[in-house]
């Protein structure tokens, strides 16, 4: 270890190559978050549905997704869906769908706890004043619930940045994949993967700290 000659120039020389990977990482994470927020809403609505069959579907999706590894889900979407539907799926699309499905299962819980955090009395006050259930949900429940769900949604974004590295397995050229490609040509895994780890950390850590601060402020309100 002590005799190791660091060659950071091999990393700096491919800086743009790696940064284009980072760009892909952020695009995948953001696109996935948007999809997962929509998917999470659908699952949450299924969970809270009046119809048993729909509730059953919602609960089943959640249970399956939460109790199988995300990498297996990703491989399943990438390799199995094309067989079932007889279509070719781009690796990028498969990655976004796979991650979104996984994250949607967790985000549906975020929505649910956000809605449940609104005291029942606030809804009863609206009801007594004559607001319809829809008006009460839109004007009283939703604005308060959204405030509670924003920090957890931001945490989900941080998770997605990290999970998107799984795209490397199905050759989506996000930053981890780019690192693998680079280290295969420069034979410098130590410098390459250390650099990549630092990049992830420099993005995720400040976000995580900011969210923690934000959550504490919401609680002390």
């Amino acid at each position: 270890m002590f005799k190791y000659q660091f060659r950071w120039d091999t990393v700096w020389g491919s800086f743009d190559f790696l940064m284009s990977g980072l760009q892909m990482t952020l695009i995948v994470s953001a696109a996935t978050l948007v999809l997962a927020m929509i998917g999470g809403l659908i699952i949450a609505l299924l969970d809270m549905s009046r119809f048993r069959a729909l509730r059953w579907i919602g609960v089943s999706i959640g249970e399956v997704v939460r109790n199988t590894p995300i990498l297996v889900q990703l491989l399943w979407v990438y390799y199995v869906l094309p067989i079932v539907f007889g279509i070719r799926i781009e690796a990028l699309v498969a990655l976004i769908i796979g991650l979104a499905l996984y994250q949607a299962a967790f985000i549906s819980e975020v929505y649910r706890s956000g809605i449940q955090s609104v005291p029942k009395g606030h809804v009863e006050a609206a009801q007594v004043l004559g607001l319809s259930p829809l008006q009460s949900f839109r004007r009283i429940v939703l604005p308060q619930a959204i405030k509670m769900t924003l920090p957890p949604l931001a945490s989900n974004f941080v998770q997605l940045i990290k999970f998107s590295s799984l795209g490397a397995v199905i050759s989506v050229s996000e930053i981890t994949r780019r690192g693998m490609e680079l280290s295969a040509t420069n034979f410098r895994p130590l410098e390459t993967f250390t650099f990549i780890a630092v990049v992830y950390f420099l993005i995720c850590w400040p976000l995580a700290m900011g969210i923690r601060f934000w959550e504490r402020r919401l609680q002390n309100r």
Partner: peptide, 16 residues
């Protein structure tokens, strides 16, 4: 409905 007003023990004002 809205002709019957109610005042609650815990006020239930909308905080937002």
């Amino acid at each position: 409905r809205s002709e019957i007003g109610m005042v609650f023990q815990h006020f239930n004002l909308w905080p937002h």
